[in-house]
Nucleic acid binder design. Structure first.
Lengths: 131, 131
DNA sequence: GTTAGTGTATTAGTAGAGTAATACACTAAA
DNA sequence: TTTAGTGTATTACTCTACTAATACACTAAC
C-alpha cells in the first residue's frame, strides 16, 4: 500500500520513490514482487499516469525495480551485499561531511567520538552499546 | 573577495552566503569586520542589488552578520562557544542520519565504528589518530 | 538642509520543475 | 488477429524560485 500526501511540498513522484524504497528496506516488498502497474497506482492515488511513470523510471534508474515488457514493474532482487555496500558508501559520505565540519572548527577526534556515542545512545534503535 | 559562478545551478544569493560563511570559518573575515555594501557587491558581481540583499538578509537571519543603520553590514562577533555548539548540533544531525541507515540494514555498531575510523584516516585534515 | 551613502519595497520577467490531458506503441494471452 | 493490459511520447498548464529594473526611505556627515 503506497500513500502520498497531496499537500506536501515534496513532489508526488518523489514520495512514491521513498515509499517503495522504504518498503523494500523493511521487507514489505520482497525480491521480484510485482508492483501495481503505472495505471493502477495512478488511479489509486488520483494522479496522472505520467507522475507515477516518473517515479518508476527514477526507481528503475536506481535499480530499485525493473520492468518486464508488457507485464509490469518488479522489485529488483538486489543482493544483500549490494545493499550493504551502497549503505556504506552513503554512510562514508556523511562521515566525511562530519569531518569537514569538525576540522573547520578544530573539534578533536575525541570530541567527535563522544558525539557519536551520544547519538547512538539516544537513537531509538541503537541503544545496545558495548561496555 | 567574494566570487560567484554565474553558470552554476546554485542560486547566486546562496553562493554568496556560503562564501561569506566559509570566510568566517576560515578566519578571512573577523568579528565586526565590515562587508562590502549591498550596492558595492552587486556592482562587483554584476548582479542586482536585490540579489545581494537577499543573501545579506539570509545571513542576518542566521546571525552571521548584522547591520548598522545607514552604514553597512558587519560580521557578527559570535563567540567560539556558539560556533562550536552549532557545529555539534549539525554533527549530531548527521550522525542520526547515519544511525538510521545503519539500523535499516542492520549494520553493527562495530562496523560503523570501523567506517568512521576509515573515513577519518582518509580525511586530508584528520589523519591524526590515537593508537 | 543637502548630499552621498546605506538598505528596502514594488513590480515584472524568466526559467525550471512538477503535473496533467491526450494520444501513441508495444506485448501477452486468448 | 483481436483484446486488454502494459509503458511512453507530446504538449501544455501551473506554480515557484530566482533575478532584475526601478523607485523609495532612511542615516550619517558635512
Amino acid at each position: 500500500m503506497i500513500r502520498v500526501d497531496e499537500s506536501s511540498p515534496v513532489p508526488i513522484y518523489q514520495q512514491i520513490v521513498e515509499e517503495v524504497k522504504r518498503a523494500v528496506l523493511t521487507g514489505v516488498f520482497g525480491p521480484d514482487q510485482r508492483l501495481p502497474s503505472i495505471r493502477e497506482l495512478a488511479l489509486e492515488l488520483k494522479v496522472n499516469p505520467n507522475t507515477v511513470a516518473k517515479a518508476y523510471q527514477e526507481m528503475e534508474a536506481q535499480r530499485v525495480i525493473y520492468f518486464r515488457r508488457g507485464q509490469g514493474a518488479y522489485i529488483s532482487p538486489r543482493s544483500e551485499e549490494e545493499r550493504v555496500q551502497e549503505a556504506q558508501r552513503e554512510i562514508s559520505r556523511l562521515f566525511r561531511q562530519v569531518l569537514d565540519i569538525a576540522h573547520s572548527l578544530r573539534l578533536s577526534r575525541t570530541r567527535l567520538n563522544d558525539l557519536f556515542r551520544q547519538a547512538a545512545q539516544e537513537h531509538p534503535d541503537m541503544k545496545e552499546e558495548k561496555p
